[in-house]
Design a protein around this nucleic acid. Structure first.
Lengths: 338, 338
DNA sequence: GTCGCAAATGTTAGCGATAACATCACCCTG
DNA sequence: CAGGGTGATGTTATCGCTAACATTTGCGAC
């Protein structure tokens, strides 16, 4: 076996004593090849170690079989798991996944990255971990292939195809849980306002609070435990306003920070204050105390995204079944004063 | 702007009144194009909205500019961050990253995935999150492009290019820290034995224990907090053997599980037992108590991997500077009986 | 046996780029 | 002003494949 030479179809054809076209037919599973011929070709393929050349194929069919993913460089739980879900589903549909990460998140960087994907002939693009600006970039850039933004809810930006876990539902679940525990005054610890997910989660939470007559205040965090810690620490020493009896954090990491802060400040959770997260990290059940949170199935979401994309590529209607989060009640929440 | 038509070089050339070759020269930044011509071509590119067709380019140059990554489907901290590091570095070197995930980890699946990458003409392949079998698959499969396995140390499998964080060094650091606290009897909570990283971490730990006259026992876990929890729970009720005064876990997640188990069992950490992790998750500083661990910079590792690959592709020698982990001392470790 | 149709296979053109070579224009030199 | 670079540009072949059409083969019917 010659080391570095990649055999072409022609070579296989020669060995099998057929034309290259017949080889092509065998490879692509076309009907109308005599079994005996097919066998001969397959044998030749094995002998030569032939591999199809996807570039040549792409050139002539004008289909790359590539899906481009734009994700934030952060290794956050949601985005990463969505990515994995996308890759798996893509492979199932015979697509390959081209991955790009965003470092700064500027429009220039976004355009560069999308351009790179376009040069490669991707048939569709998914943007994960959407900052709000990204959505506008995506809306502004006319790119000529289907693009789905994972994050904003369908109504948020017209004219842009979007998908997400039904975060609104998740947040309502969370607020309802807290309300059912008879908390009347809660703190909503939101994510950065330029993250679509953060906006969505916050809006749903405030909505539901209003509906259930729970009064709330809002502080914006940055998703990190550090920030949850410092915000909770401030709370400990606060005297000016009535103190909330529960914190509803927009993700588990910040909730963890809050847990640590209360512990360091001598408060018990959930006796002195309830803490609730959002995401359900694999670790969250082992926090101290185990964190009540909302479970989101990002992998399934990834699969749905690909299904939608494939449908769009093939001009078929997509299945719009939402991915519903579920409530996971653990020990970090209880009734106030209980 | 016609919606779905992708302009070719020929069209740009026609508009700019030059030959397609000149357009090619402009695009690839060749010298020897008159500034005025260049300007005309660039104008035409803008007007037509031309994008290079990478498939055609790949076909003729026989260089895809693609790096394939094979990773485990799990969203574990190390692999994910390595992946991000790889993508960033790849882009810096003008490569794109093709991502594939492994669901089951069989040789058949590995071969299928690698085959898919090869069809796409990847110039190199990186395997992250290596199970031991993967290494053997990788060794067995002659693929014709450089392949780097991230995980096993250089000496482990001859004839296979490998890279990793210097885990051995990290583990020695960990054991030294524990020894310096005067622990004499420790429990090594290792990862699954078929994971290369687990093997390496374990071997280094046992080595160093022996060297420092610390006696140890070993239990194999599966990286999950669940498993750390149950193993630690067993420890609580153990009477047959001398109980260890410290646990050294091969990752932070299992250490977290152990923390939870001890808490539930009424033991204090680090007063009753010390617990130490490995990885330094973003959350680890907020565990209860904050976890002493070993910090690993997987992103940098990813960058190094790409650098090595690019060097190999271009037949240049690689820079073998290892990525050294660092000790992060927090509050989960103390001297026994202190 | 030969006609004819369908199944199986072969032939040709071209996808959009780069490489290699050919040409042209221009300027400097002697 | 002829000769010869040199710099700028154009021409042609080619990469490996698939689409479309052309041809051959096999076989049953008359």
């Amino acid at each position: 076996m010659a080391a570095s030479h990649r055999p072409s179809m022609a070579e296989v054809a020669q060995l099998a004593k057929v034309s290259h076209q017949t080889v092509s037919r065998v490879i692509n599973g076309f009907p109308g090849v005599r079994p005996q011929t097919r066998e001969r070709v397959e044998q030749a393929i094995r002998e030569t170690g032939y591999r199809r050349n996807h570039a040549a194929r792409t050139l002539v069919t004008n289909k790359s079989g590539l899906i481009g993913v734009v994700t934030s460089g952060s290794a956050l739980f949601g985005p990463v798991n969505t990515l994995v879900g996308i890759e798996e589903a893509a492979r199932l549909h015979n697509y390959s996944t081209l991955l790009t990460t965003l470092r700064e998140g500027s429009k220039a960087e976004f355009d560069a990255v999308v351009g790179q994907l376009l040069d490669r002939g991707v048939e569709a693009i998914v943007t994960i971990a959407a900052h709000e600006e990204l959505v506008h970039y995506a809306g502004a850039t006319s790119i000529g292939v289907p693009l789905i933004v994972v994050g904003p809810s369908r109504t948020e930006v017209s004219d842009l195809s979007t998908m997400s876990v039904n975060q609104e539902h998740g947040m309502r679940l969370a607020v309802q849980h807290i309300a059912s525990l008879h908390h009347k005054q809660i703190l909503l610890l939101s994510g950065p306002h330029h993250w679509i997910d953060a906006q969505q989660r916050l809006r749903a939470a405030t909505d539901e609070c209003t509906k259930l007559a729970v009064s709330f205040e809002t502080i914006e965090g940055d998703w990190s435990p550090e920030c949850g810690y410092s915000i909770a620490t401030n709370l400990l020493s606060r005297t000016d306003k009535p103190r909330p009896t529960a914190i509803l954090s927009a993700n588990d990491a910040m909730a963890l920070g809050a847990l640590a802060a209360f512990r360091d400040g001598g408060w018990s959770v959930p006796e002195d204050i309830s803490v609730m997260g959002f995401d359900d990290l694999p670790e969250s059940g082992y926090f101290q105390p185990p964190l009540t949170t909302v479970h989101q199935d990002f992998r399934t979401l990834g699969g749905r995204v690909v299904a939608a994309l494939v449908a769009q590529i093939q001009d078929a209607p997509a299945d719009p079944t939402p991915v519903d989060p579920t409530l996971v009640i653990r020990r970090s929440t209880a009734s106030p004063g209980a």
